[in-house]
């Protein structure tokens, strides 16, 4: 094995003979995500069960208000399973982005001392929330069986349908984390952005309640595309009715992730000086 060499010139570091950035980042990302997950639930009585309880509480509030009081429908599907499928996906995204956006600032103690590819820091909470998502999915399965919907072979397609959600969550997480380093005010703004994203996604209401004039929001919103497709697979037992939108969102998410990684990389030498 040749010894890698690291050279700093003109305000940037470059390496010769080092492992690729992805191969450097991956092992640490796995360890960091695991730590993130453990730390979050360490010394809490319910532990990982919070991944069920949290969306359940949200469901109680919105379901009670919209479905119970205002009689908002669920596209003719069993309400609990229908809403839960959406909420589990949304919880993944919102929890990922909330932790990711302040992750670089919070890890200044480590990032100021040791070098490693910086995208690991915002990606670790995304990884940790994926474990929550898995637990949340188990909850969905239980509801599907309890409400008599059952499971079909379509469930194996679920990971494919979730790809755009992961890409967009990763891209937005890295972007928010990096921008927040430079503009601390974003920490105050991001909760509202996430609130708007929630309201713009058909999670606790069916798309049909929206007037035709704002349906374009559902088309450009990756969460809407993924949630709709996931419900097709899990509740209707049929292939997604919006394959083209999903494909477009996958392409857009991948592009966004690549651009955001390039951006982070270019400001990386300045991060430690600003943090």
């Amino acid at each position: 094995m040749t010894t890698p060499e690291f050279i700093a010139e003109g305000g940037v570091w470059r390496s010769v003979g080092a492992r690729s950035r992805l191969r450097q980042a991956w092992p640490l990302l796995v360890v960091w995500a695991r730590r993130e997950f453990r730390v979050r639930y360490r010394q809490s009585a319910l532990g990982g069960l919070w991944a069920i309880v949290q969306p359940a509480l949200t469901l109680a509030i919105y379901g009670g208000l919209l479905h119970g009081a205002l009689k908002v429908g669920s596209e003719g599907l069993p309400y609990l399973a229908w809403a839960w499928a959406g909420l589990a996906l949304w919880s993944f995204m919102v929890n990922s982005l909330t932790s990711a956006s302040s992750s670089l600032i919070n890890s200044a103690g480590i990032t100021g001392k040791v070098y490693f590819p910086r995208e690991i820091v915002p990606l670790a909470p995304v990884g940790a929330c994926s474990i929550d998502l898995l637990i949340g999915f188990c909850g969905t399965v239980v509801l599907l069986i309890v409400q008599g919907v059952g499971l079909s072979w379509h469930v194996v397609l679920l990971p494919v349908v979730l790809v755009p959600l992961f890409l967009w969550t990763a891209a937005l997480g890295i972007l928010m984390a990096t921008l927040t380093v430079f503009i601390r005010d974003l920490r105050m703004v991001i909760p509202f952005v996430l609130q708007m994203m929630f309201l713009a996604s058909p999670i606790v209401y069916p798309p049909s309640v929206l007037p035709r004039s704002v349906h374009w929001v559902l088309a450009v919103n990756p969460v809407a595309a993924v949630v709709t497709a996931a419900r097709d697979l899990l509740l209707r037992h049929e292939l997604p009715q919006n394959p083209l939108v999903l494909l477009a969102q996958t392409g857009a998410g991948l592009t966004a992730l690549i651009l955001v990684l390039a951006y982070l990389r270019s400001v990386e030498p300045r991060l430690a000086d600003v943090l």
């Binding site: 890698p4 060499e5 050279i7 700093a8 305000g11 103690g109 480590i110």
Partner: peptide
């Protein structure tokens, strides 16, 4: 030397992996 930041001018070369025992128990 820990590659956390880059020099404004001049050049720096480090061969191999750097372990800094700067602040023990980082992380």
């Amino acid at each position: 030397l820990a590659r956390v930041t880059a020099p404004t001018r001049g050049s720096l070369r480090v061969k191999g992996r750097v372990a800094s025992l700067i602040e023990l128990g980082v992380g």
